[in-house]
C-alpha cells in the first residue's frame, strides 16, 4: 500500500520541476481517488515501477500549460516534439526523486510519453490510483500514482 512519504516524493518531484524549470512552483490541489477510466490531458509522461513494489506514475498536462511552461523556460520551439520532451522530462524528474528516496525497493522504467493516443496503462491489480491535481498559474495538470 502506498505510504505517505512515497506519495510526497512523487508530488514534490513534480512541483519542484516547475519551480526549477520556470522559477515558479506549482501548487497541488485537492487529492482524490480515481474512479473509472483515467482522465488524460493532451500529453502524458509515464514511468512504470517494478521490483518489490509495482505500479505506475504518470503526469498528464494540457497543451496550453506546456506551452506557457516552455515560454517560461525561454524556449521558442513549441512543436509537438517539444511538448513530448517536456512531459518526458517531468516524468524523469519524478523518477529521479523516487530513486533518490527509495533506492533499491523500486525498479523504475525509462519514461514513456503519450500524446493524443490512449496510453497503455497497466495499473497494478488491487491498487487504487490517487489523483493529485497540479495547479500552475491558471492551468491544471494531474499527477496519478498507483502503487501496490
Amino acid at each position: 500500500m502506498l505510504r505517505e512519504e512515497e506519495l510526497k516524493t512523487f508530488v514534490d518531484g513534480t512541483t519542484r520541476y516547475f519551480e526549477v524549470a520556470a522559477q515558479q512552483p506549482a501548487t497541488i490541489g485537492s487529492p482524490y481517488l480515481l474512479e473509472g477510466e483515467p482522465a488524460m490531458h493532451d500529453y502524458t509522461g509515464m514511468i512504470n515501477i517494478t521490483g518489490k513494489r509495482e505500479g505506475v506514475v504518470y503526469f498528464t498536462a494540457p497543451r496550453a500549460m506546456l506551452t506557457v511552461l516552455l515560454m517560461k523556460m525561454q524556449e521558442s520551439d513549441f512543436s509537438h516534439e517539444s511538448m513530448r520532451d517536456l512531459v518526458g522530462e517531468v516524468a524523469n524528474t519524478i523518477s529521479g526523486n523516487a530513486r533518490r528516496d527509495f533506492g533499491h525497493d523500486f525498479v523504475i522504467s525509462v519514461p514513456s510519453v503519450f500524446a493524443g493516443e490512449k496510453p497503455q496503462i497497466s495499473q497494478p491489480a488491487g491498487a487504487r490510483a490517487f489523483v493529485i491535481p497540479i495547479h500552475w498559474r491558471s492551468h491544471s495538470a494531474k499527477l496519478v500514482v498507483s502503487l501496490t
Partner: peptide, 18 residues
C-alpha cells in the same frame, strides 16, 4: 490549508476502502 494537507486523508481513505 493546501492540497498537501489532504494527502494523508486520501491515503487513509484508500486504506479504509481496502
Amino acid at each position: 490549508l493546501t492540497g498537501n494537507d489532504f494527502l494523508p486523508i486520501v491515503l487513509k481513505l484508500d486504506e479504509l476502502l481496502a
